[in-house]
Design a protein around this nucleic acid. Structure first.
Lengths: 346, 346
DNA sequence: TTGTACGCGTTATCAC
DNA sequence: GTGATAACGCGTACAA
C-alpha cells in the first residue's frame, strides 16, 4: 500500500527503480501463466502441473511477490485478524489476557489487533465498531460502558465475546470473573485475622465490576464488620493519593479496588511510616505479576488471566464458524494470601 | 466481513432477517441515486445537492450502512492503520510509547495495530512483514534482532521507523536512547556515594542495548571501580532469581539491565533481609511508572517514553507523505535519584 | 452537479 | 490442469 501515488517527478532513466507494487498479474505475466494459476500456487492448490508451479514460484521469488492481505481480505471475506479492545494497555491485568489471546489466535494464524481506549469511555463505541469492521471478530473489555450503550452496540459487533463483565439479554459469549466470591474470600480472610473495620478503596462508579464489589461488601457489613467507602480510582496514582485519608479513619484493613490501587496505597503508607501489615493490612484484586514482588508481597484475589485469553479465543472461533455456543464461564478467583495481611492490631 | 457465506439453510419466510452486508449499492438504490453519489456523501464531498445528500444520509442511517474499511483500503491504497511491533507487551517500558503513539496517530484518525512477538525473536521478521503489509507504516522495536537480519528486512518494511535502536546503513528514521550516557550518569552517581565494586545484572547477549550498557560499564571500569557481570535477563523473575548470587560477591551496588530486573532483585534482597540502600544500592533503567512507588523508590535512568510515541508518529507521518526526513534523535536519559541508592557501607 | 465505467489485487466459477 | 471472467465493495476520472 501507500506507494501507488508515487510519481517519479522527472523521468530520468537512471533514477531509482520505481517501487511499483508487485501484483499477481505481474507474476503471472512473468511466469507466462494466468493469474488464476498463480493464485492456486500461492495457496498450495495441489492440482497444478509441477513445472508450472515451479515457474510461478521462481517468478514470485525473483519479483519479491507477496499477495496483498487487503485484496485477499476483500476477496475472501475474511481478514485473518481479530481485535481486542481494552480500556488501558498499561494495566497489567489485561496483559495476561492479551498474551493468551495472541498465542491462542496465533496458533491458527490469526493476528491480534489491539485497540486501546485509554480509559476514554466516550470513544469506546466508535473504537469498538471500527476495530471490529477491520477484522473478523472482537474481544471486548469495556467495564465502564453503560449497559444500554453496550446493548445497542452488540448487534454491530457480532461476532464478539464479552470479557470481564456480564450483560443479560444479549446472545454472545461472556467470560466473567466472580468478583463477589473473590471479595467474600478476602473479607473472610480479614475477619479471620480479627479485623472489624474495613475500608474499601472504590473504583469508578460507572464500573460494573466495582458495583459488584461494593454490593458484596455492603451486604456483608453490619454484624461482622464496619465498612468505610472511599472513592478512589483504578491506578497506582489513585491509590497513592487516597492513602492519606486513611490515617484518622481508625480502620485496620484496606480492600483496594485492584492490585494497582493497593500498590499505590501500600507505597504511600510506607512513606507515612505506617507498617504493613503490623498496623494496616492491605488486599488487592487481580493478582497481577507484580503482586508477589512488592514489599510486602500483596494478598489478593487471584484471577486466572492465563485462562481468559485462550477461552476467549475458543468462543470467538466457535462463533466465527457457526458452531454451537459453549456455556458461559464464571471464573472463580482464588484467595492468594501473602505478606500484606496480618492480625489486626489491638 | 465473515458473513458472506452465511446461507439460511431452509427458506422459511419468518426466519430471522438475514444479515446481508449493507453495501454502497444498496444505499444507492434505496436513495435512488448512483453509488458515486453515495460515496461522495459519505466522504463529505461538498459539491452534491443538499436534498440528494439528505436522502443518501437517511437511507444510510436507516440501513445502518457503513463503508467497508477493507474495500476502502483497497480502493484508496491506504488503510488508515499503522502498526507497532513490540517484543513484550507486558513490559511497562513500551506502554508509554504505545500510549503516545496511539494518541498521536489517533489525532489524525489513524489506528494502531499492536503486534507482540512475545520475546520470540525468530517470529519477529514474519510478524513485522505481516503487520506492515496490513497497514500503511510500522514502528519497529526489535532490540534483539540481529543486525544483518534487520538490514535484509528493512526494504520490505518501508515506510517504518526504528525505535530504541540504531542501525547504520539503512535510510529510515531512528529514535534512539543514549544508553551510554544513562549508564555513565548512574555510575557517576554510585561512585559519588563511595561505591567501588559494582555488579551488572546483564540483559540478553543478543540485545543491542545490553551491549552498549556493557561496553560503557567495561570502559569505565578499572581505575574507578571493579565490575562484576552477572547474566540475568529482562524480567522481574530474572532479577528475583539472580539476587541470591550477589550475597558473597562483596559488591555494594547493583546496576540492573532495566527497572523490572531491579525490582526483582530488590524484592529478593528484601526477602533475604538485606537492607536497601543501607547494605546494597540498586539502580535500574527506564523509569517505568512503578519505579517511584517501590519500597524504597528506585533510582534509575529516566527515559522520556512520552516523547518517543509522538516523535515516532511524526517521523512515520513524514515518511508516508514523502516529506523531507527529519534528523534522527538520540534521547538522553535523565538521572532520577530516589531511595534505592545510598552511601556505600564501610 | 450527477452518473457511467473502470481500477484496486485477489479469489472462485466456470468453461475448455 | 488451465485460463478467461466475474465477483468482493469502494473511490474517482471522465463524460454528460
Amino acid at each position: 500500500m501507500s506507494n501507488r501515488s508515487q510519481h517519479n517527478g522527472h523521468t530520468d532513466v537512471t533514477g531509482p527503480a520505481k517501487p511499483v507494487q508487485v501484483t499477481i498479474g505481474l507474476v503471472a505475466k512473468t511466469a507466462g501463466v494466468s493469474r488464476a494459476t498463480v493464485s492456486r500456487v500461492m495457496n498450495g492448490n495441489p492440482k497444478v502441473a509441477p513445472d508450472l508451479a515451479e515457474r510461478v514460484r521462481t517468478a514470485a521469488r525473483e519479483l519479491g511477490y507477496e499477495p496483498s492481505p487487503v485484496a485477499r481480505s476483500l476477496a475472501l471475506g475474511r481478514t485473518g485478524i481479530v481485535a481486542m479492545l481494552v480500556p488501558d494497555l498499561g494495566n497489567p491485568m489485561f496483559q495476561g489476557v492479551l498474551h493468551g489471546l495472541t498465542a491462542a489466535a496465533g496458533e491458527q494464524n490469526y493476528r491480534l489487533l489491539v485497540a486501546d481506549s485509554n480509559e476514554n469511555v466516550n470513544e469506546e463505541p466508535v473504537l469498538a465498531i471500527e476495530a471490529r469492521r477491520r477484522c473478523d471478530g472482537l474481544v471486548l473489555c469495556a467495564p465502564r460502558m453503560p449497559d444500554e450503550q453496550l446493548h445497542a452496540l452488540a448487534p454491530r459487533l457480532s461476532p464478539f465475546v464479552l470479557i470481564n463483565r456480564e450483560l443479560p439479554g444479549i446472545e454472545t459469549p461472556m467470560l466473567m470473573i466472580d468478583f463477589a466470591i473473590g471479595i467474600r474470600d478476602l473479607v473472610a480472610h480479614l475477619l479471620g485475622l480479627g479485623h472489624r473495620k474495613l475500608a474499601f478503596l472504590a473504583g469508578p462508579d460507572t464500573s460494573a465490576s466495582n458495583r459488584i464489589r461494593l454490593e458484596t461488601l455492603r451486604a456483608g457489613a453490619g454484624e461482622n464488620y464496619e465498612l468505610v467507602e472511599l472513592p478512589c480510582g483504578v491506578t497506582f496514582a489513585d491509590g497513592h493519593a487516597v492513602a492519606d485519608q486513611l490515617l484518622d479513619l481508625d480502620v485496620t484493613a484496606l480492600i483496594a479496588y485492584n492490585d494497582l490501587v493497593a500498590f499505590g496505597a501500600l507505597s504511600r503508607l510506607h512513606e507515612l511510616g505506617i507498617k504493613v501489615p503490623a498496623q494496616m493490612s492491605i488486599v488487592g484484586f487481580d493478582d497481577i505479576p507484580f503482586a508477589r514482588y512488592t514489599t510486602p508481597p500483596l494478598t489478593t484475589a487471584s484471577v486466572p488471566h492465563d485462562q481468559l485469553g485462550p477461552e476467549a479465543w475458543r468462543r470467538l472461533w466457535g462463533l466465527m464458524n457457526n458452531e454451537e455456543p459453549e456455556q458461559n464461564v464464571r471464573f472463580r478467583p482464588r484467595l492468594q494470601v501473602r505478606g500484606s495481611t496480618g492480625p489486626a492490631p489491638d
